[in-house]
Amino acid sequence: MTDLVRFEQVSLGYARRPLLRDLTFRLAAGDFLGLVGPNGSGKTTVLRGLLGTLAPLDGTIEIASGVSFGYVPQREQIDSRYPLQVLDVVLMGRYHRIGLGRRPSASDRAAAMDALGRVGMAEVAGRHIGGLSGGQKQRALIARALVGDPTVLVLDEPTNGLDLVATTQILGLIRELHEQDRLTVLMVSHALNEVANYVDQIGLLVDGQLRLGPIDEVLTERSLSDLYGIPVEVASFSGHRIVLARGHLRNGADHG
């Protein structure tokens, strides 16, 4: 498969201090990669390097010609008090194509409506962004990323703060976009159980370095125990992979 992105021994950090070292990985067309790590492990930093908003301190990041990214930021980054309709927010995904000082055209609006349709949100296009549920807001942000016809969909903690139903729906939608539209996806999350059951490849950020590979190779009890510093079990239930941290349970919790 064609490499869309290539990280070669990349160091990333802030104020010239590396947070992540020697990152080497490739993202090929059609990949679905999940980047997982504890809070503060540098997941968002990797995204910034990939998206070109953070220059590498060392190494090279190669982006193949013609590759474009559809970025879905963390939902909390969006200020819902702006008096904007959902359609206005989705249209922002076309702004870079429209040109300096120009307004969105009818075809931009049609593309935005189409993107909303792809995420099942066409009927709420006229609603205020602040009036949406967390899951709906996340879908709107995914639609905004899709409206620019990206080669790679990049999502930062897409299920953060969502309830069980919304989490399942959002991850299902991302998987659907990957399978049906053959969209390359890079998803960053701290929620290991969620990522493990939806992505094809997983990357664990451990002590500033990346361990990357197919799920079965990377998601072992040993590597996860190393990553989180506590004993971890990997179990399987109805075809779902479940990662459990061994801890001090309440009385009777293990007799269910």
């Binding site: 990214f69 970025y71 702006y82 922002m92 702004y95 300096l100 969105p104």
Partner: peptide, 22 residues
């Protein structure tokens, strides 16, 4: 009036605006 779109994007979501080259 002319640069309303640009002011809106960098005010509402600067991180995403940056990824689009703004």
């Amino acid at each position: 009036a002319v640069f309303y779109k640009e002011f809106l994007f960098v005010s509402f979501d600067p991180e995403t605006a940056r990824t689009q080259g703004f």
